[in-house]
């Protein structure tokens, strides 16, 4: 603010510095353009999913009789139907629905922290940042469970890969779960894309949580009060909302369709 006052006083032209292009601060502008580039990265991953999925045959049988096979792309809601503590119970998409709920709620608490920051309300910034951090950890915990279940396997009757080669699944010789070399749920690429896309998003969530913790700490020791503004909360907030935004797309294109 001090710098813009000086620029006005000296009557210099726009290109002499001291003015903010697009009326946004340097940090916020750069965050926006970083997020644009990050959006291209995630688009690349999701478009890869679209390309590979549309180049594989779709499952044509009756919906209720679905059994995964290497021959066709799986129906996501048949794969992602497990919920913690309810082993063997099929509740399609319930757990990813919960993850979506958690991330949307943590986006709201983030924007409430930004609002409190505008009012120099340190107590409320800290409160809402803490809720955002808790939401972030809750999401990461859910994703850890989701991954471990995906890797360990469904254990469902008639599923799994027959390692014996005789077409009969037997205990001890069939393979359940998925990794980068084998995949119970369908074509190998399905598992690879699951690990890469949700993993890349999860990494973003993790780094977002780290940034949130740093901002929470700085708010609590009064760094932003001494600086005179809470703009750092806004910048980290932009990143956090972007992570939520990406999940909205991952949820639709990976799980729903």
């Amino acid at each position: 603010m001090a710098s813009s006052a000086i620029a006005e006083k000296s009557g210099k032209n726009l290109w002499d510095g001291g003015a903010s292009p697009m009326k946004a601060s340097y940090g916020k502008l750069m965050m926006w353009f970083f997020l644009l580039s990050d959006a291209f990265t995630f688009s690349g991953l999701l478009i890869t999913y679209g390309l590979l999925r549309s180049s594989h045959p779709a499952y044509r049988g009756a919906h209720a009789d679905f059994v995964p096979s290497q021959e066709y792309w799986p129906i996501p809601e048949k794969i992602f139907d497990a919920v913690p503590f309810l082993h063997g119970v099929s509740i399609p998409l319930a757990f990813v629905g919960l993850m979506t709920f958690i991330l949307i709620m943590s986006s709201v608490t983030m924007v409430l922290a930004v609002e409190a920051g505008h009012r120099m309300d340190k107590k409320n910034v800290m409160k809402w940042m803490l809720w955002t951090i808790i939401g972030g950890f809750a999401f990461l915990g859910c994703q850890a469970w989701e991954w471990s279940h995906f890797i360990t396997g469904s254990g469902k009757e008639g599923w799994g890969i027959d390692l014996n080669g005789d077409g009969i699944l037997q205990a001890g010789v069939d393979f359940f779960g998925a990794n980068l070399a084998m995949n119970e749920y369908g074509p190998q690429l399905f598992a690879d894309l699951f690990f890469f896309i949700t993993g890349f998003h999860g990494t973003h969530v993790l780094s977002g949580v780290v940034l949130n913790v740093i901002v929470f700490y700085q708010a609590s020791v009064g760094t932003f009060e001494r600086r005179g503004h809470y703009e750092m909360v806004e910048k980290v907030g932009l990143y956090w909302h972007f992570v939520d935004l990406v999940w909205v797309f991952v949820f639709t294109f990976f799980y729903l369709i």
């Binding site: 926006w32 644009l36 688009s43 478009i47 679209g50 390309l51």
Partner: peptide, 28 residues
């Protein structure tokens, strides 16, 4: 200006989705 600077480049994504999903069906 900021709104359009962010929104317009994303047109490339729309194009790429259409092009590559079409391509995928051709591969299949």
């Amino acid at each position: 200006l900021l709104v359009w600077s962010i929104a317009l480049p994303l047109i490339f994504v729309v194009w790429m989705v259409i092009a590559l999903v079409y391509e995928g069906e051709a591969i299949s």
